[in-house]
Amino acid sequence: MTQHSPIIRVIARYAVPLSIVVAIRIFFQGHDEPGGGFIAGTLLAAAGAMYMLAFGVRRVSRFPWWRVAVVGLLVSVTTGTVPFLLGKPFMDNVILHLGTVHLPTATFFDLGVMMIVLGTLMTIFLELDLERR
């Protein structure tokens, strides 16, 4: 399947990792500056799309993306229920002070959101593509 033109493969080889780095950057700056799980998830999906555009679907389609979404949901829900189990109100946010960084537990919830968005979008990409074959 090398009929993808070399140009786009070269660009993708640099663009995709760069996008992933930016996506992670946006994810972590979510709380103070604009960003967050949803945007990071979509950006990762866009990076995935670029990868598929350039290198084809074969390697990507083997990975079960819909499981990513389900695990994401689990992560979010557990982040919500853990404080609930500890007797605090549901979805309460605990700010953990790990050394200098203050990490609100809501970040894990955000992580869940990111995984869900990524998983769902990639699943839809792959399924629509398989549909055409």
């Binding site: 140009i7 786009i8 070269v10 663009a15 760069l18």
Partner: peptide, 20 residues
Amino acid sequence: FLAIVFQLLTTPGATYLLAH
């Protein structure tokens, strides 16, 4: 700076693809 580098990387590629 990062944006400029990425822009220089991608736009010629996109226009080439369209022309091709």
